[in-house]
Write a protein that binds this DNA or RNA. Structure first.
Length: 561
DNA sequence: ATAGGGTTAG
């Protein structure tokens, strides 16, 4: 029995799409051999051939738990969640009982499809099946809850397990990390080490993924040291997360040092480095490494191209943007909606709205992201009524506006100074489209009011928000105070900003500008001197202030330039 | 009898 099966299977694997052979194989051997049916099904699934996988499943009369799990997993991994769920329902009607792996797979599918209600239901199913303390199910539950931003629920599951295994520790640590609770992750990490559990690459990735502030650099360096000690730095995921951690912490020298020590960095690591350079404002280096990547014969993918286009947009330099557009055309990927949307944004930010509109027009299919890019571009050029026309077109085409759509519309109102229209958009977003206002929306509302000189209204809007208020919102008001020259309010706002410890330096620069604008040179200088030189340089958009020391001496207020 | 299955990076 095993002989011919194995042989056929090998032949089959060397000729993956030979249908006659497949048919022969199915007819003669499969019905009697659930083991190879599972192997074959998995082989199809790995190669993305769901139809054949399904065929194997349908033609197997004896379906083991393995076969069921494999077919469910195949659909879930291909993001065919409906199919996965209905297969699961079908399985429950047979005498085969779902096991811990079946549930783990379904739990993950719930998280991947952002189905919180489904997740809660499946969680109940796990409890009823008596798998509440199973480590396989628990680790899937911990990850799923964290991914749906219910970290408390995740830690409740985690705390219920007396002796977590490594995967479970890792799930909880990366749950904390991805939620930004790096301190809790670190605490858990030391707890884990005190139990003599040896960390692996997953542990490190979870720990480092939460670090995203230059003040946390020494913590990152410490964990980097541990990687070297445990020889985990050769792990591809670890090295890429090291590069991106240093990038996020604005330490590009360290990021580059890690990168150049790698034997063969993969595409994700390359793009972590390149995106890091571009986000820290070093666009030349970003372009330089992008060229190097190409010269090494590696192909950038959609994520990297989109990131490069964002860099070109930030530079507001048309040439690199055009070159990447040409690359996109040469490789025939212009029909990808993410790429086209990034192109629209790039052209309109570079001042070539016409080109952006052109890209939009020739897109074979437009989704909400492409509309959002265009609306943002129109708004940037002061064409608010055009932006509103696009919004109507979205509704007319049966598309669903999302939070970015409203963000773009509010931005358009800001640029055109349309206070009342902005208020109306804000109201409709909440009432009609049931979208909760986020930081970016409040930032726009504050700017909209503040730039029209209605500083008090903006101030009271912020005071009506629940604590903690994001520092970006206060920052927007401070900017308006700068423009309106309202020193009194600026000092109140600054007080709020300096109390929270994030991005202190940027706001100190802003306040020092306002002091300078008011002729209070001593106060301005004192504030400026309290900012370390390095930080001043690393703040995008603020570096020009450093080279403009003479502005103070000539008694020209910076804020009016 | 045999199988793979839960946690990571831009």
């Amino acid at each position: 029995m095993q002989g011919p099966c194995l042989c056929l299977s090998k032949v089959y694997q060397s000729l993956p799409r030979t249908n006659q052979l497949h048919a022969l194989f199915l007819k003669t051997h499969l019905p009697h051999d659930p083991f190879y049916a599972t192997r074959l099904l998995r082989f199809y699934a790995i190669n993305g051939d769901l139809r054949s996988a399904r065929q194997v499943f349908d033609e197997s009369p004896h379906r083991s738990v393995y076969l069921w799990n494999s077919i469910i997993r195949a659909h879930a991994q291909a993001y065919r969640f409906e199919d996965a769920f209905s297969l699961f329902a079908e399985m429950r009607r047979t005498e085969i009982k779902p096991d811990n792996f079946t549930y783990a797979c379904i739990v993950r599918a719930c998280a991947d499809s952002f189905d919180l209600d489904g997740l809660k239901l499946v969680h109940c199913g796990v409890m009823v099946a008596g798998l509440g303390l199973d480590s396989i199910c628990s680790s899937a539950l911990v990850s799923a809850y964290s991914r749906l931003s219910l970290v408390d629920e995740a830690s409740r599951v985690f705390n219920g397990i007396r002796q977590p295994d490594l995967v479970l520790w890792n799930s909880m640590i990366s749950g904390y990390g991805s939620g930004g609770f790096w301190d809790k992750g670190l605490q858990l990490f030391s707890e884990m080490r005190s139990m003599e559990m040896v960390p692996d690459g997953y542990t490190i990735v979870g720990l480092l993924s939460g670090l995203a502030d230059s003040s946390l650099i020494s913590i990152g360096e410490g964990i980097h040291g541990l990687c070297l000690k445990w020889n985990l730095d050769s792990n591809a995921h670890v090295s890429s997360v090291l590069v991106s951690m240093y990038s996020r912490c604005m330490s590009m020298n360290s990021a580059h040092r890690v990168f150049s020590g790698l034997f063969e960095p993969d595409l994700v690591t390359w793009s972590a480095l390149i995106t890091g350079f571009s986000q820290s404002g070093d666009y030349d280096k970003a372009l330089f490494f992008f060229k190097n990547l190409n010269m090494e014969g590696k192909k950038p993918d959609f994520v990297l191209i989109a990131s490069m286009l964002a860099a070109a947009a930030q530079m507001a330099h048309l040439r690199p943007g055009c070159e990447i557009h040409a690359y996109v055309l040469r490789h025939g990927i212009e029909s990808d909606v993410m790429i086209s949307s990034a192109l629209i944004a790039m052209y309109s930010k570079c001042g070539f709205l016409g080109m952006g509109t052109r890209v939009f027009e020739i897109m074979p299919e437009k989704n909400i992201v492409s509309y959002n890019s265009l609306i943002l571009g129109l708004g940037l050029h002061g064409l608010a009524s055009e932006a509103f026309r696009m919004f109507d077109e979205i509704l007319g085409n049966g598309l669903k506006p999302d939070e970015s759509t409203f963000s773009a519309l509010l931005c358009a109102c800001c640029h055109a100074g349309l206070v009342e229209d902005g208020r109306e958009v804000f109201r409709r977003m909440k009432d009609e489209f049931c979208i909760q206002a986020r930081t970016e929306h409040y930032v726009h509302m504050v700017k909209l009011l503040g730039m029209e000189g209605r500083l008090e209204e903006a101030y009271y809007l912020i005071l009506s928000l629940p604590e903690p208020v994001d520092s970006g919102i206060w920052g927007a008001l401070l900017l308006c105070c700068d423009v309106c020259g309202n020193l009194e309010l600026a000092e109140i706002v600054s007080q709020r900003l300096f109390e929270s410890n994030s991005e202190k330096s940027a706001y100190r620069v802003m306040l020092s500008n306002i002091y300078a604008g008011d002729g209070r040179w001593d106060d301005a200088k004192k504030l400026r001197d309290s900012i370390t030189e390095g930080k001043l340089m690393k703040m995008p958009g603020l570096s020009w202030i450093k080279g403009s020391e003479f502005l103070f001496d000539q008694n020209i207020p910076c804020s009016r330039i």
